[in-house]
C-alpha cells in the first residue's frame, strides 16, 4: 500500500467514526441520513459498474451484461432517491439480511477451521452466532429507526476501525537477491 493510499484510508476511517458518533447522538437525523447513504451507495455502485464496463468489461467475452447491470442499478438508485419516504422496516430488513448472511458465512468458516484443527474456530463461531442472534432479534423491532441506527453504526464503526488498522499494517515484501 502506497503512502497516499494509507493517508486516504486513515482520513476516511476517522470521518466514518465521526459520522458514527453523530448518528448515535441524534437518531432522528440519523435514520434519514442512513437511508440516504444507502441510496447514494447504490447510485455510486451503478456508476462504478458503468466505469468498469468502459475500462475493462467491454473487452470481455459477454461483458455487455455488466453494462445492463450498471444501468439497472443506477436507475433503481435514482428512483429510490426520488421517493419522499422509505418505510423504516425496509431499511432494517436490508441490514438484517446482510447480518444474517455474514453470520452464516462465519459459522461455515468456523466449521471448516475446526475440521482442520485450526486455532481460531471458537472465535469465529462466537461472532457468527452473535450476528445471527442479532439478525433474528432485530425482526422484533422492524418499525424502530433506533435499532436500525444502532446496527448501522456498529457496522460502520467496524469498517472504519478495520480501514485504519489495515492502513497501519506493514505490507511491503522485502526482496533480497
Amino acid at each position: 500500500m502506497g503512502r497516499t493510499r494509507r493517508i486516504i484510508d486513515i482520513v476516511a476511517g476517522c470521518v466514518m467514526l465521526l459520522v458514527c458518533f453523530l448518528l448515535m447522538t441524534d437518531p432522528g437525523f440519523g435514520y434519514g441520513f442512513a437511508i440516504l447513504f444507502l441510496i447514494i451507495s447504490m447510485i455510486a455502485y451503478g456508476v462504478r459498474l458503468l466505469a468498469y464496463y468502459v475500462t475493462m468489461a467491454r473487452f470481455k467475452v459477454g461483458g455487455i451484461s455488466v453494462l445492463y447491470k450498471g444501468l439497472l442499478i443506477l436507475d433503481a438508485g435514482l428512483f429510490a432517491l426520488c421517493l419522499k419516504n422509505v418505510p423504516k422496516a425496509y431499511g432494517l430488513l436490508y441490514l438484517l439480511g446482510c447480518l444474517l448472511v455474514d453470520g452464516i458465512v462465519d459459522i461455515l468458516k468456523a466449521n471448516e477451521a475446526r475440521k482442520l484443527e485450526a486455532r481460531h474456530w471458537r472465535y469465529r463461531l462466537f461472532f457468527g452466532s452473535g450476528k445471527i442472534l442479532i439478525a433474528f432479534s432485530g425482526l422484533f423491532f422492524l418499525g424502530s429507526g433506533d435499532v436500525l441506527i444502532l446496527i448501522y453504526c456498529a457496522g460502520l464503526a467496524h469498517s472504519a476501525i478495520t480501514k485504519i488498522i489495515n492502513a497501519l499494517r506493514r505490507t511491503e515484501i522485502v526482496y533480497i537477491n
Binding site: 506493514r170 511491503e172 522485502v174 526482496y175 533480497i176 537477491n177
Partner: peptide
C-alpha cells in the same frame, strides 16, 4: 501483487516474517 522493497537499496522494510529470509541468506 503489492509493493516490493529491495533489501540492498532500502534495507529491511515491510512484513516481519521476511526477516527469516534475510537472516537465512
Amino acid at each position: 501483487a503489492g509493493y516490493s522493497a529491495d533489501y540492498r537499496s532500502k534495507g529491511f522494510k515491510g512484513i516481519r516474517d521476511y526477516k527469516k529470509l534475510v537472516e537465512f541468506r
